[in-house]
Write a protein that binds this DNA or RNA. Structure first.
Lengths: 180, 180
DNA sequence: CTTCGATGTATCGAGCCGATATACTCGGTC
DNA sequence: GACCGAGTATATCGGCTCGATACATCGAAG
């Protein structure tokens, strides 16, 4: 997840970890936030894997022990990002994963976009059915608060399914447009 | 989170880890699920802390190395649960935490309920404003898909704020009813 | 009589978080 | 010219959680 996001953002330009985190926050902040406690370890993992390199490390001035590093995408990194873009696995169907992947949707191949949207729809439909079942099953027994929350969740699921249907229809129309 | 949920469920009856996980899933499944990979380590932590005890460990039959354990709440465990119930910190405002806490709302003191609902409202309002700002800021620049998702999220936030307002009003009415 | 699904306990590696520590730089202010 | 707060920047630590995996029993269906 974080690896995918880092690789995606670094396509813009090489940057400091700090700036990267800010861009991450600006771009994905509404779906997901990442802390430094995961960012820096992940950057080192990507370095080891050769997906990014350190460029223009500022010399250590005085007795400052921490050099300022600029991270830059490598060819392997771009390749890896393309692979991740083409992946429509289950991690792209949950709330956060879907949000993050959707952020890079304009760079995602049309067929993968479709598989992600359909996977997400299946996921949300399952949740919707689960909530319907829970509401039908209980009626009397369960807590008033829980029932209210289930009701709210059910409406949200129904709306999202409608939203997804529209998006999917739109994608299909676009596909047909290109074919002719 | 898991500690809170375990303690809450174990109020029903002592049970096996396996059964506990099932009850957890039935009760909270719509907001949050927990894997065995977190359940068993957490149970051992609670054992060490004296919040639960092993009761009626089935004898190891044959060359079965794994005994069946029944976990039971202790007085300290009940106390701890009461403490957690009375906590209205930020972890009760996010999606999952709110869902879990709401599950035990009928056992939560009225003033704590109110603080949780208000905290949650503040949280959702912040998200709503963030989404509004994002939609206003961009309009042209940002990705079509992101904009659509922001729009969906904005509507969901608005609905949830309304939902919370109704719940809060209801709680207040109930309070006034009891006072007189 | 075997296989399959449910019951049941458990570990491992890895990702991620929140809190915390450490420094430098630049603008303003007293 | 000393001081301070906010922003820039890197980094670690302990702890929680997940998904995958492994092991083992038991009843029922075939």
């Amino acid at each position: 997840m974080l690896e995918f996001a880092i690789l995606g953002i670094l396509h813009e330009a090489p940057m400091h970890g700090y700036v990267l985190r800010k861009r991450l926050h600006e771009t994905l902040g509404m779906f997901r936030t990442f802390s430094y406690g995961s960012l820096y370890p992940t950057l080192r993992r990507l370095l080891r894997a050769g997906l990014i390199v350190e460029e223009a490390v500022d010399p250590v001035t005085g007795w400052n022990r921490r050099a300022k590093r600029v991270y830059k995408l490598t060819a392997e990194g771009k390749e890896r990002f393309a692979e991740l873009l083409a992946d429509a696995g289950p991690q792209t169907w949950d709330d956060e994963g879907f949000g993050v992947h959707l952020t890079f949707f304009s760079r995602t191949p049309a067929d993968v976009r479709m598989r992600i949207l359909e996977g997400r729809r299946r996921r949300v439909e399952e949740r919707r059915e689960g909530l319907r079942a829970a509401l039908a099953r209980a009626e009397e027994k369960i807590d008033r608060y829980t029932r209210e929350l289930h009701q709210l969740g059910l409406e949200a699921s129904e709306r999202e399914v409608r939203w997804l249907n529209e998006l999917i229809a739109h994608e299909q129309a676009e596909q047909r447009g290109k074919e002719t």
